[in-house]
Amino acid sequence: MAGYFSVFLVLLTLGSGLIWLIDHLVYAPKRKERIALAQGASEQPLDQEVIDQIAPVPAITDSAKSIFPMIAAITVFRSFIFEPFQIPSGSMMPTLLDGDFILVQKYAYGIKDPVWRSQLVDVDDPKRGDIAVFKFPLDERIDFIKRIVGLPGDRIVYRNRQLFINPKCEEGEQSRDGLACGEFNKIDVEIVNRDEFKQGSMPLVRLTESLPDVEHDILINPKALELSERYYQQPGTRRDEWVVPEGSYFALGDNRNNSQDSRVWGFVPKENLVGKAVFIWMSFDFENGPNSLLPGWVPTGVRFERLGNIQ
């Protein structure tokens, strides 16, 4: 849906701009000539009502001239600078909650045209720990949001609710991105609490996971089965091990037992990246129960304490 809206904005901008340009170059000079002739034949200055009758501006032209600057500014801002997104699920809890409204920095990983999404300018590559919005590789009409944990060439293992990373290193390197080369680095976790979040009636454990240079919280369900039989099976590796291809990334949801991510469907190609999630600008509670008179999409409160930069 976001892709269709981008195309609509571009077409509306081009259409209104083209109407304004044609009028400016072709029809506006003719209107000025008619007004000048009428003014020359009149002994009194023409008022606006008479001018509108002599040289009326078509309604479509007037509308195009009114909306073009605003639509053009929105298109540029949304296509190349920041785009708003709403978090639709709990797969990134506790970092992002259902009902959070975020800003995504569109230029973080490169500037792309808003229609065909071809790369126009290279800016930077994703860093380990970035929260990225991307086009779902299995259906690019859908936007996904996950945390980047594996970079090109990395070997990733997710086993017994524990993340291990063996980074890609150049010959002779002893470490890369704070991780030891040539071995699987166990990513440290530390329990924060056990009763803040629940999945149904099941308490979830909140832990702080320490990626190099980035600490962030995750949730795990200690009693849930690891459904490794559903994992994406990469040729030549174990079922819970993956080698990240060049030009791709491995992404996980922070809510580890409730996230459809790279463990299930594979890797995120760089060309699918939309941008980096950087700011929560609004956050709503939606707690209308089954007996509520209000529909479920009506907010019941504002979580002001959540507003700010995303970690």
Rank of each mutant, 00 (worst) to 15 (best):
Y109R: 08
G110W: 00
G110Y: 00
I111V: 15
I111S: 11
I111G: 09
D113C: 02
D113L: 01
D113V: 01
D113K: 03
V115G: 08
R117P: 01
R117E: 10
S118Q: 11
S118M: 09
Q119D: 03
L120C: 07
L120G: 09
L120M: 13
D122G: 10
D125Y: 10
D125W: 02
P126N: 07
P126K: 13
R128G: 05
G129I: 08
G129R: 01
D130Q: 10
I131S: 09
A132N: 02
A132Q: 04
V133I: 13
F134W: 08
K135E: 13
K135Y: 12
F136H: 14
F136K: 12
F136C: 12
F136D: 14
L138V: 13
L138N: 14
D139N: 14
D139T: 05
D139E: 04
E140G: 10
E140S: 13
E140L: 00
E140K: 13
R141I: 00
I142H: 10
I142C: 05
D143E: 14
D143Y: 09
F144D: 10
F144H: 08
F144K: 03
I148T: 08
I148V: 15
V149Y: 01
G150K: 09
L151S: 11
L151F: 04
P152M: 08
G153W: 03
D154F: 02
R155E: 14
V157Q: 15
V157G: 06
R159A: 14
R161T: 09
Q162S: 10
Q162P: 00
L163I: 10
L163V: 09
F164I: 03
I165E: 00
I165P: 04
N166F: 02
P167G: 03
P167V: 02
P167Y: 03
P167N: 03
K168E: 05
K168D: 04
C169E: 06
C169W: 06
C169Y: 09
E170G: 12
E170D: 12
E171M: 03
E171G: 05
E171R: 06
E171V: 10
E173R: 13
Q174A: 12
Q174S: 13
S175N: 10
S175C: 01
R176G: 06
R176S: 14
R176L: 04
R176K: 15
D177H: 13
G178V: 00
G178E: 07
L179S: 12
A180L: 08
A180C: 02
G182W: 00
G182D: 05
E183N: 09
F184Q: 05
K186E: 14
D188K: 15
V189S: 12
V189Q: 15
V189D: 05
E190Q: 12
E190F: 04
E190C: 00
E190L: 02
I191R: 11
I191D: 07
I191Y: 00
V192C: 10
N193F: 02
R194K: 14
R194D: 06
F197N: 12
F197D: 12
Q199P: 00
G200E: 08
G200L: 01
S201A: 11
S201I: 04
P203A: 08
P203T: 08
P203G: 05
L204C: 11
L204V: 11
V205Q: 09
V205Y: 07
